[in-house]
Design a protein around this nucleic acid. Sequence first.
DNA 1: ATTGACCCATAAACTAGTTTAAGAAATCAG
DNA 2: CTGATTTCTTAAACTAGTTTATGGGTCAAT
Lengths: 194, 194
Amino acid sequence: MQAKPLIQHFETYLPFEVEEKQLIHERISFRKVKRREHLLRTVEICRHYTFVVKGVLRMYGIDGNGKEHNILFASENEWLSDISSFHATQPGESNIQALEPTEVIQIEQQDLYYLYINIPKLDRIFKVITEEKYVELQNRVFQSISSTAQERYLYFLSKYPSLGSRLPNTQIASYLGITPEFLSMIRKELVAKK
Amino acid sequence: MQAKPLIQHFETYLPFEVEEKQLIHERISFRKVKRREHLLRTVEICRHYTFVVKGVLRMYGIDGNGKEHNILFASENEWLSDISSFHATQPGESNIQALEPTEVIQIEQQDLYYLYINIPKLDRIFKVITEEKYVELQNRVFQSISSTAQERYLYFLSKYPSLGSRLPNTQIASYLGITPEFLSMIRKELVAKK
DNA sequence: ATTGACCCATAAACTAGTTTAAGAAATCAG
DNA sequence: CTGATTTCTTAAACTAGTTTATGGGTCAAT
C-alpha cells in the first residue's frame, strides 16, 4: 500500500484509527519524479503538499540576474511545498526539482482541507511539523548573519550528513550562498587541517 | 479587559464563542516590559508564548565571539517565542529584549496546551500563524543567499516601513547581518542616488 | 550646566568571498 | 567504450563588507 510511509510518518506524532488511514489513503496520490525533472516552476501555482518517500528534491529561487539559489532540500520523510502559493492558489516564485530519481506522495489543496476538517488532529500535526521547520529555518537565518561560510558548511554537514555526500558541491554551495569555487577552497582547507 | 487585543487578533482568523473567550482570558497574563529589559536570556527555559500588544521586542543570539545578532523583531500583534525551548522545556540559546517600552500578553506552556485541547481551532490558528512566519523566514533565507546588503536593507524597509524609523541603525544592521558602519555607507549611497 | 552612555558618520587598512578563466576528473547517454 | 556534459580544482584579479580609530551629536541623569 503506497500510503504506508506517509501513515508511518503521521504516526510518529499521533496514533490513527483505521478509518482515518483509509480517508488519508483516498485523498493522496503517488508519483515518481525523474532526476532533473521539475515538480514546480516559477509563475506556476503550487498545487500540492509533497512528501518525499525516497530521493531528494531541492526548492530554489531565481534572482534578478537569472541565477538559481537553493532555498532548501527535502529528502526522505520530509514535506515540501511553496506554502504561500499553495494556500493562496496564486502563482509563486519557487521552483522544485528532483536531484535524484525520487518518489513522492502528494496531497492537493482541496484534499488537504477536507482532511483537516475530517481529521482535526492533522491540524495539530501540521502545526508541529511547521514549527519544527520554522526552528530549522530560524537557526539557518542566525547562521547566515553570524557565521563564516566555513562554519555554515560544517553546520550543514553535521545537520545533514547524508546530503553532504549525496549532493554535488555546486548544489551545496548554492544552498550556503557561496560560489562553488569558494566551497572548493573551504574543503581544501578542511582537509589540510585534519 | 486586557485580553481584548489578543481576542481581536485571533478573530482575524476564526470567530470565537463567548465561553471560549472566557477560557482564553483565564489562561493569559498581561505584562509591561521596560526598554532594554529582558524577557529571556541564553540558557534560560522559554516559559511563554508572547504576544506584543504595543512596542517592539527583538530576539537575538550570541555567537562564539560573544557578539549579538538579531534574529527577528516582533512589534504590535506579533507572536514571539523560542519555540524549541518552549516545547521541550529545555534551556535555549535565544535572548528576548524590549527595544521600546512594551506591553505584552503571555501564555505559559501548560495553559497553551490546555487551550489547544479545549479550543481545537487554536491548533488551526497557530498552524496558520506559524505557516505565515515560516514563509517570511524563507523569504529572508532566500534574500540572505541571493542579495547584496543594500538589497536586503531596501527589502527590510519595504516590508517593515515603521521599524525602519523606530529602530536604531545598529539594531537594523545586526538584523541584516552587516556592521553599522556598512549600513551607514549604504544609507549614504541611497540618499545620493535619490 | 555637565557628565556619561549611546548612536551615527567617515575614512583607511584589511579580509572574506566573487569572478573569470582554464584544465583535470568524474558522470552519463548513446 | 566513447564523446559530451557536468562537476571539481586552482589561481589571479577584483569587490563587498569588516575592523579599527576618531570625532560629533543627542539625550537622560545628576
